[in-house]
């Protein structure tokens, strides 16, 4: 059984390393600041005992006030998982750091979010629309589209 790690426990560890980076933590998820997302992701991937070597999925949700981007991480070696969330504000040009440098599995998924939500990922090697054509107006999965 994949053990879902408690966000509270991990939050304590992360707060020690990067003070002020965790916004909120619950039993099953962890909400971190967008600025420190990349260093926290790197820490989760390379720290012994955590070893999150596998990025299961990335997805975004539009809550109108902000976009929530969720990272589902799994460790194949230790068989545990964690849900890391982050928020980005503003509807004109929301931006997040890209995690492709850590997990290449993020490549198409970040492009998908860029295409359908209009969230840019800084540091992505090939950020362009994936399903819709260039020149398409708007981002369909936003709640204010149509």
């Amino acid at each position: 059984m994949t053990l879902a790690l408690s966000g509270k426990e991990i939050a304590k560890q992360i707060e020690k390393q990067f003070p002020g980076s965790v916004v909120e933590s619950t039993a099953d998820s962890l909400l971190v600041k967008a600025e420190s997302l990349l260093e926290i992701a790197g820490y989760l991937k390379s720290t012994r005992g955590l070893d999150f070597d596998y990025l299961t999925a990335i997805t975004a949700v539009d809550f109108l006030d902000y976009f929530e981007v969720d990272y589902l991480l799994t460790s194949l070696r230790r068989n545990h998982s964690l849900l890391v969330k982050t928020r980005c504000y503003g509807r004109e040009n929301p931006t997040l750091p890209s995690v492709v440098s850590l997990w290449r599995g993020a490549d198409f998924q970040e492009r998908e979010i860029y295409d359908l939500f209009g969230i840019s990922f800084e540091g992505h090697p090939n950020l362009k629309r994936i399903f819709l054509w260039d020149g398409f107006q708007g981002h369909p999965l936003r709640k204010d589209f149509l």
Binding site: T56, T59, V61, D62, L72, R104, G105, D107, F108
Partner: peptide
């Protein structure tokens, strides 16, 4: 559903 996301294995397997 407010959000319905699919983790599609075929898409992600094509990354490499």
């Amino acid at each position: 559903p407010y959000r319905f996301h699919v983790r599609a294995p075929a898409l992600i397997n094509l990354t490499a």
